[in-house]
């Protein structure tokens, strides 16, 4: 039997050096979720009359961070989460660092529970996310109360958590479609 002349069958670890274009391509693939969040932050902070944009932005960001942290952590590293949270605080009017802290907590929970979560049905994942999102919104509200030193109205926090829960299924459908497209391209 003739040995296969291609290099990969001899030494699977040794591969030809990636070209500049390939490296740019894979880098962009890893940056895609972070770029999406950054774009969402810029769009929602723009002076465009979108209804409920103040509550919708954190909802989208939390759902995105959760989804990528447990399905593909390489696309959502901790450093990117920290930088995006800080950026959101700088653009918005929340106390500086609060969003970064909360997003890191969400990211950490999703990252460490991902092997358990991956085996669950979508509805169960959604339920877990709902609990996590509500906790995150409550924590944000609590921190805001703490820094202002008086009790704030709880309705916006509840509204934000409901938006979080509602925005998760469409976003996860969108990201699953993006996954499939990227995987198809890699296979091709």
């Amino acid at each position: 039997m003739m040995p296969d002349p291609s290099m990969s069958s001899w030494e699977p670890e040794i591969q030809p050096r990636q070209t500049l274009w390939q490296r740019l391509d894979s880098g962009l693939r890893h940056l895609l979720p972070s770029l999406f969040i950054a774009l969402a932050i810029i769009v929602f902070s723009a002076p465009i009359p979108l209804p409920g944009s103040a509550e919708l932005l954190p909802a989208i960001v939390i759902a995105t961070v959760f989804f990528w942290s447990f399905w593909r952590p390489s696309g959502m590293p901790s450093l990117a989460v920290f930088v995006l949270g800080l950026f959101m605080d700088l653009v918005g009017f929340a106390p500086l660092g609060v969003s970064a802290f909360i997003l890191l907590l969400v990211h950490g929970v999703a990252f460490y529970a991902r092997f358990g979560l991956m085996r669950l049905h979508f509805l169960l994942v959604w339920a877990v996310f709902s609990l996590l999102a509500t906790a995150a919104c409550m924590l944000q509200w609590g921190l805001a109360c703490l820094f202002r030193l008086h009790m704030l109205d709880m309705a916006p926090a509840l509204f934000e958590s409901f938006l979080c829960i509602g925005v998760y299924p469409p976003l996860s459908a969108l990201f699953s479609w993006v996954f499939r497209m990227l995987d198809d391209e890699e296979d091709a």
Binding site: F82, P95, G97, L143
Partner: peptide, 24 residues
């Protein structure tokens, strides 16, 4: 270690921003 370090850093940012509001 990266995640706990970043968490600590964000807490530091929160406290720092509260301490020095003009800078924030």
């Amino acid at each position: 270690l990266v995640l706990p370090l970043l968490l600590l850093l964000s807490i530091g940012v929160i406290i720092g921003a509260q301490a020095d509001k003009p800078l924030a």
